[in-house]
Amino acid sequence: MSSGLLDIRRIYFEAAAAELPRGKEVLAKFPQAQLVEVASHNRIDEVYGDETNVNRWVRIKREALVLGVKKTLAARPNGRSADFIAPSTANGCAMACAYCYVPRHKGYSNPITVFANIDRIEGYLKRHAAKQGVKPAPNECDPTAWVYDIGENSDCSVDARISDNVRDLVTLFRWMPNAKASFATKHVNRDLLDWDPQGRTRIRFSLMPQRDAKLLDIRTSPIAERMAAIDDFVAAGYEVHVNFSPVVVRDGWLEDWAELLGDLDAAIGPAARQQLAAEVIFLTHNRELHEVNLGWHPKAEELIWRPDLQQPKRSQNGSLNVRYRTGAKGEYVAALVGLIGERLPYCRVRYAF
């Protein structure tokens, strides 16, 4: 267990989840935890949907765990990071990044929920990938494999400290000739180095200048530690990409990105460089999350809530998002992509927006 990141003292569980083998394993791992039976993993008033939890947000993330059953299984088409978003084996996170979109959808404290019906999720993925057949043509996700993002709503490197769900998926994709798994992470978990993925799992280490990470990437592994892990994960059989995300525009932002790119170049060897690719994602923020953040981390909002640089955009669910202004944002994107081309000429930019 990662010291300080997780100290599970209370487990909210669905009865059906506790009866499954994976549920029993998770409960046995935390024998001292208080057990609280709930009717549904996503209807826990004490945890979800209560903005007053902002005062104890981090404590809930560290001490609470939810154990449930994933009832709806679907692979949603994506087309950027992955061809499909796989059914979640977990959601929520022990980390507390100030810009994270998940809290605005799933509750403001949002600790980790582990889904115990991993066998059903695996079976669904095997059938879904088999139905796709051979990938007919290369795309920005991958030239030959159908890519499934297995960690859209959680950080798999942290999830792996709680259950074997992630390890089971890495093993599953090892033997799938037409598909590979993918997930982004801000946490270095070296236990994953022993899993022998044989190139069928892509890890995307999220990176940003340390000046930004200090304020925004709360409870995550340091940026230098993430970069230092890349060679080891490549040697262990993972495909390793990087996410330059989120890119925050401020005074001196491009100079700090130039320094980061130089540090990354110095941190990795030939094998990592040969297969490196990047996603570039500029910050999108949300008014509701902004208001919540003001209650626990107002300094972060000075950096990421910039009405002078941003414009509103109404999302499909009716929320008010803000992003950098049209026109100016195109210039920002071009500047950073150009800088990547100069400093990391071997690094393919898979997409940037």
Rank of each mutant, 00 (worst) to 15 (best):
I162A: 04
I150G: 01
L172M: 15
G199M: 12
D196S: 07
V188G: 10
P136Q: 11
F205R: 07
S154V: 07
G199T: 11
V166G: 10
K186T: 04
K186F: 06
I203H: 10
S182K: 15
R167H: 04
T144D: 12
L207D: 14
K180I: 07
S157A: 15
P136E: 07
H187E: 06
G151I: 05
D155A: 02
T201H: 03
H187I: 13
R190G: 11
N189V: 13
P138W: 09
T171K: 14
E152G: 00
Q198F: 01
S182W: 01
S206P: 11
T171I: 05
G199L: 03
A184M: 12
G133Y: 00
C156L: 12
T201Y: 02
K180S: 03
I162M: 06
S157R: 11
N139T: 15
D142T: 03
R200A: 08
R200G: 00
R204V: 04
S163Y: 08
A184E: 01
Q198S: 10
K131E: 07
A179C: 06
I162N: 06
G133C: 13
R202L: 09
T171G: 10
Y148G: 09
D142I: 02
T171F: 07
P143A: 03
I203L: 09
R202K: 11
T171H: 15
D164M: 10
T171S: 12
P138A: 12
E140K: 07
D159G: 09
R204F: 00
V188W: 09
D191N: 09
D168Y: 02
K186M: 02
F205D: 09
P143G: 10
D142C: 02
Q198Y: 00
W195V: 04
C156G: 02
W175V: 05
D142Q: 02
A130L: 13
N165A: 15
T144Q: 14
Q198V: 02
P197I: 02
V166L: 11
P143K: 03
V188E: 00
T185I: 08
A184G: 14
S157M: 15
I203Q: 04
V166D: 00
R167Q: 04
K135R: 13
